Amino acid sequence: MSEQLPAKHEMGLSNGQVADAVRGHWVDTWLPVAFRPYARLSRLERPIGWWLLLWPCLWSMTLAVATTDSSHHPDVLTILWYGVAFWLGAVVMRGAGCTYNDLVDHKIDGMVERTRSRPLPSKQVTRVHAWGWLVLQALIGLFVLLQFNSYTIWLGFASLAVVAIYPFMKRITHWPQLVLGLAFSWGGLVGWTAITGVLAPAPVLMYIACAVWTIGYDTIYAHQDKEDDVMIGVKSTALLFAENTKIWLSVFYGVMVILMACALVVSGVSWPAFVGLAAATVQMGWQIKRLDINNAAQCLALFRSNTQIGWILFAGLLASIWI
């Protein structure tokens, strides 16, 4: 299925389409027309968001299974169910986060060419209905969270404080990507505690590594909107780093690799995980080499390529379980 986005000048959209949405997606072809604006509020046509939210969960959970005493693990079927639960939680909580972000930013979105046709600024959905949709997604997320042990449940609730403040950060700091990283990487903690019931140095190191990784890939993403951001007066690391973005990406991705390696060493995981990390490092280097910060389409493509890092690291950790 094509993921070709429309050109920026294609603003004559029909059937409630959104300028920065993926064209020809099942949201626009299979869903009832009345539900499509809500699906777009949740960015269901753009799975990269929930993949990036899911990967820290799966990495951390797999690392815990690979490196801790199996007598303290849940049974295999329960672990598989946890994987499914993390997927469902990533989808609905990413959707809830996007809905909340749109509620906070609907006036800003109305001034940005890429986002002005989104459901709220284009009045496809009322704010009251958007809040209702947010609550429904949050309730599903709560159901998912309650499947885990009490330690993980309380740890999951703690993430809400970071999630709540994120949409406001672009108004006061050039580092909203840091706050996004702290929120998006929470799975690096709860994936481990879902298996072990307690935190340890390895998942904390993984959490910080994922947060730094998020700053890197979301800086690439933010370069799509830098002209509009300057006009509106909102901030981002893309504007802060500007022509030095490649240097900063090298720093963030480098720190991510070092911290992830430390997490693997501390946990005592076997060698395939390190092979996976080495391959992921090559992919990050390819991103930096390819990046043209003035090419919005390329920035989006490179941002999306970060799910490859997820698969590579996950494959290495899975191989470690068997070896």
Rank of each mutant, 00 (worst) to 15 (best):
I79D: 02
V282T: 08
V230E: 15
F86P: 00
L146Q: 12
M111E: 07
M206P: 01
I79R: 02
D225R: 06
W175P: 00
F143G: 15
E45I: 03
K8M: 06
R36N: 01
F274M: 05
F184I: 12
K246V: 13
K246R: 12
C262K: 01
G187V: 04
L155K: 13
P272G: 09
K123N: 14
I232M: 10
A164V: 08
L80P: 01
W286S: 01
I321S: 04
F274G: 05
Q177R: 07
M93Q: 11
V135E: 03
N101Q: 11
D28K: 09
A7V: 06
M93K: 05
M1S: 08
M1Y: 12
W154Q: 12
G188A: 13
L302Y: 09
V179T: 14
A19S: 08
V230D: 03
S60L: 13
V33I: 06
G188Y: 03
P119H: 03
P6Q: 04
V104A: 12
I312K: 03
K8D: 11
F303M: 09
A222V: 06
S122F: 04
Y166E: 11
H9V: 09
A263D: 07
I48V: 15
A200Q: 07
L249D: 01
L139V: 15
W175I: 02
W175N: 00
T214E: 00
I153K: 02
G268R: 13
M284I: 04
Q4W: 00
G83K: 15
T29G: 07
E227S: 11
D225C: 06
L313F: 06
C262N: 06
R304A: 13
A194S: 14
Y100D: 02
V128S: 09
I323V: 14
V125H: 01
C98F: 02
G254E: 11
D102V: 09
A39N: 10
W133M: 08
Q4M: 02
A64R: 10
P37M: 10
Q287Y: 02
A164F: 10
V65T: 04
D75F: 03
L189V: 08
Q298P: 02
T214I: 10
W192E: 04
G12C: 04
L88W: 08
W286G: 00
I172Q: 02
F143H: 04
L58C: 08
A183L: 05
V22A: 14
